[in-house]
């Protein structure tokens, strides 16, 4: 692993975490917990893995990312702004009347957003459609999706899981943000989705299990996914909800609550 690259990406991830804190703080609402848990994965995708061009967001051969857990919009917006799709100052308009940064991603509002999401369970099927179209057109683009662990309680996720394996979508890589928490409590208590690895394997996926905050592991998993032929890859990333902000880490209460001004200050200090 290229140490310099790793450090670069880790620095980017810190910037993205800071943006998440700032923007949810400014909005006074939103979902910091699940945005922070996915920050390293999204950073790896937007700053290393994906073949994209912010100057030409609709470029036909681009790689695509579907944020199936759409409530983590802040992490997507932060990455898109950091990558140059729109000015970073605009992040502070999150959730405000007239903003392009809707509470959940709106593909028609903001360049770089590949799919409007927010209703859990729907993103993987859409990613499947993109991957199928890529195969049909013999294009080389890859499709990425990010799902929540609570989200996997939705039946439609498993319809899509079945279909992706059935159609041998090896141009599709999904991440499962395994932070162990949903709204009403730990996933284990609300409705267990375990054993996750066995389930995805049984559905015909190539399954990898990683530490979702270890940039080296994320990059290796992505490389392995790319080299896996004949089936889609699911990267189950063990994460900590609220990662990077001490008082948010692993706290179910920080799912959908914005930090207050003094909490923003503290969080930003920690992330420096």
């Amino acid at each position: 692993m290229n140490e310099e690259l790793k450090q670069q990406l880790e620095a980017k991830a810190r910037e993205i975490r800071k943006s998440i804190v700032r923007m949810t703080g400014a909005a006074g609402s939103g979902h910091p917990g699940g945005s922070l848990s996915a920050a390293d994965i999204v950073t790896a995708l937007y700053f290393h893995e994906m073949n994209i061009n912010p100057q030409e967001p609709d470029w036909a051969d681009r790689d695509r990312f579907v944020l199936s857990k759409g409530h983590a919009a802040p992490v997507l917006y932060a990455a898109l702004a950091e990558r140059g799709y729109f000015p970073k100052e605009e992040l502070l308009t999150l959730r405000k009347m007239g903003s392009r940064l809707q509470g959940h991603p709106d593909l028609n509002a903001l360049p770089g957003v590949e799919m409007s999401t927010g209703s859990l369970g729907q993103g993987l099927a859409v990613a499947n459609g993109m991957a199928l179209a890529g195969k049909l057109d013999q294009k080389d683009y890859r499709v990425y999706a990010l799902l929540g662990d609570g989200e996997c309680q939705e039946g439609m996720v498993w319809e899509a899981a079945m279909a992706a394996a059935h159609y041998r979508l090896d141009n599709l890589t999904a991440f499962l943000d395994d932070n162990g928490l949903q709204i009403d409590g730990p996933v284990e208590e609300v409705m267990s989705t375990k054993p996750l690895i066995d389930k995805w394997k049984a559905f015909g996926w190539h399954v990898l299990s990683i530490d979702g905050h270890d940039m080296g592991q994320i990059l290796s998993a992505l490389a392995e996914a790319k080299n896996t032929k004949g089936r889609p890859t699911m990267i189950i990333a063990k994460t900590i909800k609220g990662k990077g902000v001490s008082f948010m880490e692993d706290q179910v209460g920080w799912h959908g609550v914005a930090p207050k001004p003094e909490q923003v200050t503290q969080a930003l200090a920690e992330l420096e």
Binding site: A125, G129, L132, A133, L136, D137, E159, A163
Partner: peptide, 28 residues
């Protein structure tokens, strides 16, 4: 046959996959 996709008895997936096709320039 190459442009036909059976999604199985999974209507939610049927619609979601069609959305993905549309996003990739197809008319599903």
């Amino acid at each position: 046959p190459e442009r036909f996709f059976n999604m199985g008895i999974a209507e939610q997936n049927l619609i979601g996959t069609a959305a993905g096709f549309a996003l990739s320039g197809k008319i599903p």
